Simulated assay, not measured.
Amino acid sequence: MSERPQALITGASRGIGAAVARALAETHSLLLGGRDLAALQSLADELPDARPWPVELTDTTALRAATAGLSRLDVLVHSAGAARVGPLTEASAELWRSIYEVNVVAVAELTRLLLPALRAARGRVVLVNSGAGQVANPGWGPYAASKFALRAYADVLRAEEETSGVRVTSVFPGRTDTAMQRGVRADEGGEYEPDKYLRPESVAAAIRTAVTATDDAHITEVVIRSRPNR
């Protein structure tokens, strides 16, 4: 059994989640969460101490089964997310529910199930939020609302776990060059301009800093924006 600290990363099959896995690979044993087993296995094969952790996060029964054997966990990174862009008049109840299920409810339930293990390790919880979790703009209603809710969840979790030693970090990246961003730009009808966006690796580097902070430091929030004239 590995003696290295263990990190579970959701949404690890691509984008920011995969970048976080690579950023933590030198120091942590990794559980790679996601639905695409082939993509997770491919990533695990390139890392020194990683294995797939395939689960549907919105399936509470599957989630309970998947977490049952995790008695100790040092780091939990919530990177999985769902986004849709469009006017509020076109946002159905089903759309609201689907976005909240992934961006809020699944995060809360997975964290709840793993809190005993995280407390045992005095671990870290990192929630990948968004600039939309700080400022809500037209077209982003359900997504922004879910990210504001995620921010509130993190704030309450941080306060409630203050005496347990669990540290909670919200990360607010701007637009990032990911497959999700491509879908968002398609919804917006705009040109995809990756050179103007953050790289997933840049967001992952900030997350790694929060995860590896010294014991006297609690990095509560990280805001990252791209440099427009780089």
Rank of each mutant, 00 (worst) to 15 (best):
L127K: 04
P138S: 13
V75N: 06
R182F: 02
P194Y: 01
E90W: 10
V171P: 02
E161G: 11
Q134M: 14
G86S: 10
D187T: 10
R119Y: 01
E109R: 08
D195W: 12
P138C: 14
L127F: 10
A204N: 08
A144E: 11
A82D: 10
D74Y: 07
N129V: 02
P142I: 06
T89L: 08
T169A: 08
P142E: 01
S164A: 13
V125N: 04
V135S: 05
V171M: 04
P194S: 02
S98R: 12
V128A: 06
Y197C: 06
A91T: 10
V102L: 12
G174S: 12
G174P: 05
A204C: 09
A204W: 06
E193N: 10
L73C: 03
L115D: 07
E188H: 01
T169H: 07
G165R: 06
R122K: 11
S146V: 08
R208S: 12
A159M: 14
E160K: 04
V128W: 01
E90N: 13
T176M: 12
A159Y: 11
W140M: 15
R158S: 01
F172I: 06
V104L: 15
R151H: 13
D74T: 07
G174T: 07
R175K: 14
P200M: 06
E160G: 08
E162K: 13
G165Q: 09
R167N: 11
I99R: 03
G139N: 07
S71D: 13
R151W: 00
Y100P: 00
A136S: 14
A121I: 00
N129M: 06
A145W: 11
